[in-house]
């Protein structure tokens, strides 16, 4: 990605904007142009729920330099409250305490920044829900 593409994707990144199939209701994030369940191309933009639970996760220890300051971090397969599955990076979490079924919520965080232009890139990460 470059500064330009980071800017282009900013809204779907900040607000978790995906697409929903108007025919069968499947939801995808990030956006895609065709539904892989029913084949329909009739998709509408939709804002995804901001809460879900961890289905599986791994702890990433060999990582790109733009994420050095988060080393090591967890990437989880998350099922959102509407059943949509996505990948999300976890934050504010003790890596030893992550578990399948753990409730998580979206939070806007700084991802990385560009040295020369100074542009800072924000995006959604997921943190444990402390109390219900």
């Amino acid at each position: 990605m470059t500064e330009i593409s980071d800017w282009r994707y900013r809204i779907e990144r900040y607000r978790l904007i995906g697409v929903r199939c108007r025919r069968c209701g499947s939801v995808y994030y990030p956006k895609r142009s065709k539904c892989i369940k029913c084949g329909s191309s009739d998709l509408e933009e939709v804002e995804l729920p901001k809460r879900g639970r961890v289905v599986e996760y791994t702890i990433v220890r060999l990582l790109p330099d733009r994420y050095n300051r988060f080393h090591p971090y967890a990437v989880a397969l998350i099922e959102l409250d509407d059943g949509t599955r996505i990948y999300g990076q976890l934050t504010d979490v003790d890596l030893d305490k992550i578990h399948e079924g753990m409730e998580v919520e979206a939070t806007l965080r700084k991802l990385y920044e560009y040295g020369e232009s100074g542009q800072i890139v924000y995006g959604i990460k997921f943190r444990p829900v402390l109390s219900r």
Binding site: M1, P64, Y67
Partner: peptide, 26 residues
């Protein structure tokens, strides 16, 4: 190494690599 780890992840959707931290091993 750190550039290599991004490099070998580049067949994945770059949206996931750069915005979620997906690597080739996830």
């Amino acid at each position: 190494p750190h550039r290599l780890y991004r490099g070998i992840s580049l067949s994945e959707d770059i949206f996931l690599v750069d915005y979620i931290g997906l690597t080739n091993l996830v």
